[in-house]
Protein backbone atom coordinates (compact mmCIF):
# COMPACT_ATOMS: atom_id res chain seq x y z
CA UNK A 1 0.00 0.00 0.00
CA UNK A 2 2.82 2.33 0.94
CA UNK A 3 4.43 1.75 -2.49
CA UNK A 4 1.19 2.34 -4.31
CA UNK A 5 0.63 5.61 -2.44
CA UNK A 6 4.21 6.70 -3.21
CA UNK A 7 3.71 6.03 -6.94
CA UNK A 8 0.41 7.88 -6.98
CA UNK A 9 1.93 10.88 -5.21
CA UNK A 10 4.88 10.89 -7.55
CA UNK A 11 2.93 10.77 -10.80
CA UNK A 12 -0.12 12.76 -9.74
CA UNK A 13 -2.60 13.20 -12.58
CA UNK A 14 -0.43 11.08 -14.87
CA UNK A 15 -1.32 7.98 -12.87
CA UNK A 16 -4.57 6.09 -12.46
CA UNK A 17 -5.33 3.39 -9.94
CA UNK A 18 -6.54 0.08 -11.33
CA UNK A 19 -8.09 -2.63 -9.18
CA UNK A 20 -10.26 -5.03 -11.20
CA UNK A 21 -9.96 -2.94 -14.35
CA UNK A 22 -13.59 -3.43 -15.37
CA UNK A 23 -14.22 0.29 -15.88
CA UNK A 24 -10.71 1.51 -16.62
CA UNK A 25 -9.73 -1.02 -19.28
CA UNK A 26 -12.77 -0.33 -21.52
CA UNK A 27 -12.00 3.39 -21.29
CA UNK A 28 -8.40 2.77 -22.33
CA UNK A 29 -9.40 0.29 -25.02
CA UNK A 30 -11.85 2.73 -26.57
CA UNK A 31 -9.25 5.47 -26.20
CA UNK A 32 -11.71 7.61 -24.30
CA UNK A 33 -9.01 8.15 -21.70
CA UNK A 34 -5.31 7.53 -21.59
CA UNK A 35 -2.82 7.64 -18.73
CA UNK A 36 0.96 7.44 -18.88
CA UNK A 37 0.92 5.33 -15.71
CA UNK A 38 -1.51 2.75 -14.39
CA UNK A 39 -0.94 1.70 -10.77
CA UNK A 40 -2.28 -1.80 -10.45
CA UNK A 41 -3.27 -2.41 -6.83
CA UNK A 42 -5.00 -5.73 -7.40
CA UNK A 43 -2.10 -7.58 -5.74
CA UNK A 44 -2.30 -5.70 -2.43
CA UNK A 45 -2.82 -8.09 0.46
CA UNK A 46 -5.45 -7.92 3.16
CA UNK A 47 -7.91 -5.74 1.30
CA UNK A 48 -10.50 -8.33 0.39
CA UNK A 49 -11.96 -9.09 3.79
CA UNK A 50 -15.58 -8.88 4.84
CA UNK A 51 -15.77 -8.87 8.65
CA UNK A 52 -17.90 -7.38 11.40
CA UNK A 53 -15.71 -5.51 13.87
CA UNK A 54 -17.14 -3.41 16.68
CA UNK A 55 -20.06 -1.42 15.32
CA UNK A 56 -19.17 -1.89 11.66
CA UNK A 57 -19.06 -4.34 8.83
CA UNK A 58 -15.67 -3.75 7.26
CA UNK A 59 -15.26 -4.49 3.55
CA UNK A 60 -11.82 -4.25 2.00
CA UNK A 61 -11.82 -2.25 -1.20
CA UNK A 62 -10.33 -5.09 -3.27
CA UNK A 63 -13.22 -7.42 -2.42
CA UNK A 64 -14.62 -8.52 -5.76
CA UNK A 65 -18.28 -8.07 -6.56
CA UNK A 66 -18.60 -11.87 -6.76
CA UNK A 67 -17.13 -12.26 -3.27
CA UNK A 68 -19.61 -9.71 -2.02
CA UNK A 69 -22.49 -11.44 -3.79
CA UNK A 70 -21.60 -14.84 -2.37
CA UNK A 71 -20.72 -13.79 1.18
CA UNK A 72 -23.08 -15.40 3.70
CA UNK A 73 -22.93 -12.56 6.20
CA UNK A 74 -23.82 -10.04 3.50
CA UNK A 75 -26.58 -12.28 2.22
CA UNK A 76 -28.02 -12.62 5.72
CA UNK A 77 -27.81 -9.09 7.11
CA UNK A 78 -27.10 -6.67 4.27
CA UNK A 79 -29.64 -7.65 1.66
CA UNK A 80 -29.46 -4.43 -0.33
CA UNK A 81 -25.74 -4.93 -0.81
CA UNK A 82 -26.18 -8.58 -1.69
CA UNK A 83 -28.88 -7.75 -4.24
CA UNK A 84 -26.95 -4.91 -5.81
CA UNK A 85 -23.85 -7.08 -6.20
CA UNK A 86 -25.84 -9.73 -8.03
CA UNK A 87 -27.27 -7.17 -10.45
CA UNK A 88 -23.99 -5.65 -11.59
CA UNK A 89 -23.12 -6.38 -15.23
CA UNK A 90 -22.41 -10.09 -15.73
CA UNK A 91 -20.49 -12.80 -13.88
CA UNK A 92 -17.29 -12.12 -15.85
CA UNK A 93 -17.27 -8.51 -14.72
CA UNK A 94 -18.29 -9.42 -11.17
CA UNK A 95 -15.41 -11.88 -10.88
CA UNK A 96 -12.89 -9.16 -11.67
CA UNK A 97 -14.55 -5.92 -10.60
CA UNK A 98 -14.07 -4.73 -7.02
CA UNK A 99 -16.27 -2.86 -4.59
CA UNK A 100 -13.59 -0.18 -4.26
CA UNK A 101 -13.42 0.32 -8.01
CA UNK A 102 -17.18 0.43 -8.32
CA UNK A 103 -17.30 3.27 -5.79
CA UNK A 104 -14.09 5.15 -6.69
CA UNK A 105 -14.93 5.36 -10.40
CA UNK A 106 -17.60 7.93 -9.52
CA UNK A 107 -19.94 6.67 -12.23
CA UNK A 108 -23.51 7.77 -11.38
CA UNK A 109 -24.72 4.51 -12.91
CA UNK A 110 -22.61 2.26 -10.68
CA UNK A 111 -24.72 0.46 -8.13
CA UNK A 112 -22.70 0.19 -4.93
CA UNK A 113 -22.63 3.92 -4.08
CA UNK A 114 -26.42 4.13 -3.71
CA UNK A 115 -26.41 1.10 -1.42
CA UNK A 116 -23.70 2.37 0.90
CA UNK A 117 -25.43 5.75 0.98
CA UNK A 118 -28.65 4.06 2.12
CA UNK A 119 -26.68 2.09 4.70
CA UNK A 120 -25.01 5.33 5.96
CA UNK A 121 -21.55 3.88 5.44
CA UNK A 122 -18.21 5.57 5.91
CA UNK A 123 -15.28 5.25 3.54
CA UNK A 124 -11.75 4.91 4.85
CA UNK A 125 -9.27 6.58 2.53
CA UNK A 126 -5.57 5.80 2.79
CA UNK A 127 -2.96 8.46 2.07
CA UNK A 128 0.70 9.05 2.75
CA UNK A 129 -0.17 11.39 5.57
CA UNK A 130 -2.48 8.86 7.16
CA UNK A 131 -6.06 7.68 6.81
CA UNK A 132 -9.23 9.73 6.85
CA UNK A 133 -12.91 8.80 6.87
CA UNK A 134 -15.64 10.37 4.75
CA UNK A 135 -19.38 9.72 4.65
CA UNK A 136 -20.61 7.66 1.71
CA UNK A 137 -23.03 10.39 0.60
CA UNK A 138 -20.28 12.98 0.28
CA UNK A 139 -17.71 10.77 -1.48
CA UNK A 140 -18.84 11.25 -5.07
CA UNK A 141 -19.08 14.98 -5.78
CA UNK A 142 -20.02 14.97 -9.45
CA UNK A 143 -20.07 12.74 -12.50
CA UNK A 144 -16.85 10.67 -12.33
CA UNK A 145 -15.47 12.97 -9.62
CA UNK A 146 -14.78 12.03 -6.00
CA UNK A 147 -13.18 13.56 -2.90
CA UNK A 148 -10.12 11.34 -3.41
CA UNK A 149 -7.07 13.56 -3.49
CA UNK A 150 -3.83 12.95 -5.29
CA UNK A 151 -2.07 10.02 -3.69
CA UNK A 152 -5.17 8.63 -1.97
CA UNK A 153 -6.75 5.20 -2.31
CA UNK A 154 -10.10 3.95 -1.02
CA UNK A 155 -9.10 1.31 1.50
CA UNK A 156 -12.18 0.10 3.34
CA UNK A 157 -15.91 0.58 3.43
CA UNK A 158 -17.41 0.68 6.91
CA UNK A 159 -21.09 -0.11 7.16
CA UNK A 160 -22.85 0.32 10.51
CA UNK A 161 -24.15 -3.05 11.69
CA UNK A 162 -27.93 -2.81 11.33
CA UNK A 163 -29.88 -2.88 14.56
CA UNK A 164 -32.92 -5.01 15.26
CA UNK A 165 -36.11 -4.40 13.27
CA UNK A 166 -34.26 -3.29 10.19
CA UNK A 167 -34.34 -4.37 6.59
CA UNK A 168 -33.53 -3.11 3.14
CA UNK A 169 -33.33 -3.89 -0.54
CA UNK A 170 -31.96 -2.73 -3.88
CA UNK A 171 -34.25 -2.55 -6.90
CA UNK A 172 -32.69 -1.96 -10.28
CA UNK A 173 -34.66 -1.47 -13.45
CA UNK A 174 -32.63 -2.14 -16.57
CA UNK A 175 -33.38 -2.42 -20.25
CA UNK A 176 -31.65 -5.74 -20.63
CA UNK A 177 -29.60 -8.23 -18.66
CA UNK A 178 -26.08 -7.04 -17.92
CA UNK A 179 -26.83 -3.42 -18.68
CA UNK A 180 -26.63 -0.34 -16.49
CA UNK A 181 -29.92 0.77 -14.99
CA UNK A 182 -32.59 3.09 -16.26
CA UNK A 183 -32.98 3.88 -12.55
CA UNK A 184 -32.25 2.03 -9.33
CA UNK A 185 -32.94 2.60 -5.66
CA UNK A 186 -31.51 1.30 -2.39
CA UNK A 187 -33.63 1.56 0.73
CA UNK A 188 -32.76 0.70 4.31
CA UNK A 189 -35.35 1.05 7.11
CA UNK A 190 -35.14 0.60 10.85
CA UNK A 191 -38.43 0.39 12.70
CA UNK A 192 -39.54 1.26 16.21
CA UNK A 193 -41.27 -1.43 18.22
CA UNK A 194 -44.60 0.14 17.24
CA UNK A 195 -43.66 -0.20 13.56
CA UNK A 196 -43.02 3.50 13.02
CA UNK A 197 -39.92 4.24 10.98
CA UNK A 198 -37.04 4.99 13.30
CA UNK A 199 -34.53 5.75 10.56
CA UNK A 200 -34.53 5.57 6.79
CA UNK A 201 -31.74 5.51 4.24
CA UNK A 202 -32.42 6.00 0.52
CA UNK A 203 -29.76 6.00 -2.18
CA UNK A 204 -30.40 6.46 -5.93
CA UNK A 205 -28.54 5.27 -9.03
CA UNK A 206 -28.62 6.69 -12.58
CA UNK A 207 -31.02 9.55 -11.86
CA UNK A 208 -28.59 12.45 -11.32
CA UNK A 209 -25.04 13.39 -12.31
CA UNK A 210 -23.92 11.55 -9.17
CA UNK A 211 -25.25 8.88 -6.84
CA UNK A 212 -27.85 10.61 -4.76
CA UNK A 213 -29.08 10.46 -1.21
CA UNK A 214 -32.80 11.22 -1.04
CA UNK A 215 -32.58 13.26 2.16
CA UNK A 216 -36.10 14.65 2.08
CA UNK A 217 -37.57 11.27 1.30
CA UNK A 218 -35.70 9.82 4.28
CA UNK A 219 -36.87 12.48 6.74
CA UNK A 220 -40.45 12.27 5.45
CA UNK A 221 -40.51 8.59 6.35
CA UNK A 222 -38.92 8.95 9.75
CA UNK A 223 -41.43 8.80 12.57
CA UNK A 224 -44.23 7.68 10.25
CA UNK A 225 -46.27 4.53 10.12
CA UNK A 226 -46.15 3.13 6.62
CA UNK A 227 -49.40 3.06 4.74
CA UNK A 228 -49.92 2.89 0.99
CA UNK A 229 -50.43 6.63 0.90
CA UNK A 230 -47.36 7.54 2.97
CA UNK A 231 -45.24 5.27 0.78
CA UNK A 232 -46.67 6.85 -2.35
CA UNK A 233 -46.00 10.30 -0.95
CA UNK A 234 -42.45 9.32 0.03
CA UNK A 235 -41.80 8.03 -3.49
CA UNK A 236 -43.11 11.28 -4.90
CA UNK A 237 -40.70 13.22 -2.72
CA UNK A 238 -37.81 10.97 -3.75
CA UNK A 239 -38.65 11.55 -7.42
CA UNK A 240 -38.67 15.31 -6.80
CA UNK A 241 -35.14 15.02 -5.40
CA UNK A 242 -33.87 13.23 -8.51
CA UNK A 243 -32.42 14.99 -11.48
CA UNK A 244 -32.25 12.56 -14.39
CA UNK A 245 -31.47 13.55 -17.96
CA UNK A 246 -32.85 12.29 -21.23
CA UNK A 247 -30.46 9.89 -22.88
CA UNK A 248 -30.12 6.52 -24.50
CA UNK A 249 -31.88 4.85 -21.53
CA UNK A 250 -35.01 6.91 -21.94
CA UNK A 251 -36.50 10.32 -21.45
CA UNK A 252 -36.32 12.25 -18.20
CA UNK A 253 -40.05 11.71 -17.69
CA UNK A 254 -39.76 7.97 -18.21
CA UNK A 255 -36.90 7.69 -15.73
CA UNK A 256 -38.88 9.62 -13.12
CA UNK A 257 -41.87 7.34 -13.64
CA UNK A 258 -39.68 4.28 -13.27
CA UNK A 259 -37.99 5.72 -10.18
CA UNK A 260 -41.35 6.43 -8.57
CA UNK A 261 -42.53 2.86 -9.07
CA UNK A 262 -39.38 1.14 -7.88
CA UNK A 263 -39.11 3.45 -4.89
CA UNK A 264 -42.61 2.55 -3.72
CA UNK A 265 -41.80 -1.10 -4.23
CA UNK A 266 -38.47 -0.79 -2.40
CA UNK A 267 -39.99 0.93 0.64
CA UNK A 268 -42.71 -1.71 0.93
CA UNK A 269 -40.22 -4.54 0.58
CA UNK A 270 -37.79 -3.03 3.08
CA UNK A 271 -40.64 -2.61 5.56
CA UNK A 272 -41.68 -6.25 5.15
CA UNK A 273 -38.12 -7.38 5.69
CA UNK A 274 -37.71 -5.19 8.75
CA UNK A 275 -40.93 -6.65 10.19
CA UNK A 276 -39.70 -10.21 9.81
CA UNK A 277 -36.61 -9.55 11.88
Amino acid sequence: MEDALQLLSKYGDDAKVMAGGQSLIPLLKLRIASFPYVVNISGLKGLNQIVEKGDYLEIGSLTTISELEENDLVKEKYQALHEAAGLIADPLVRNMGTIGGNVSHGDPSNDIPAVIIALKAKLELAGLRGNRNVDADSFVTDSFTTVLEKGEILKRILIPIPGTNSGGCYIKHKKSAGDFSVAAVAVHLRLEDDERVKSAGIGLTSVAPKPLRAVRGESYLEGKKLTDSTVREAAKIVVSESNPSTDFYGSLEFKKKVLGRITEEAIHLSFERAMVR
Partner: peptide, 16 residues
Protein backbone atom coordinates in the same frame (compact mmCIF):
# COMPACT_ATOMS: atom_id res chain seq x y z
CA UNK B 1 -24.50 8.86 -33.61
CA UNK B 2 -25.53 8.25 -30.01
CA UNK B 3 -25.48 4.47 -30.30
CA UNK B 4 -21.96 3.55 -29.31
CA UNK B 5 -21.87 -0.17 -28.59
CA UNK B 6 -23.45 -3.40 -29.72
CA UNK B 7 -25.36 -3.37 -26.44
CA UNK B 8 -26.69 0.14 -27.09
CA UNK B 9 -27.67 -0.96 -30.59
CA UNK B 10 -30.18 -3.29 -28.97
CA UNK B 11 -29.36 -6.67 -30.49
CA UNK B 12 -31.71 -9.19 -28.87
CA UNK B 13 -30.48 -11.18 -25.88
CA UNK B 14 -31.42 -14.68 -24.76
CA UNK B 15 -33.83 -13.17 -22.22
CA UNK B 16 -35.82 -11.57 -25.08
Amino acid sequence: LITSSISDAGVPLAED
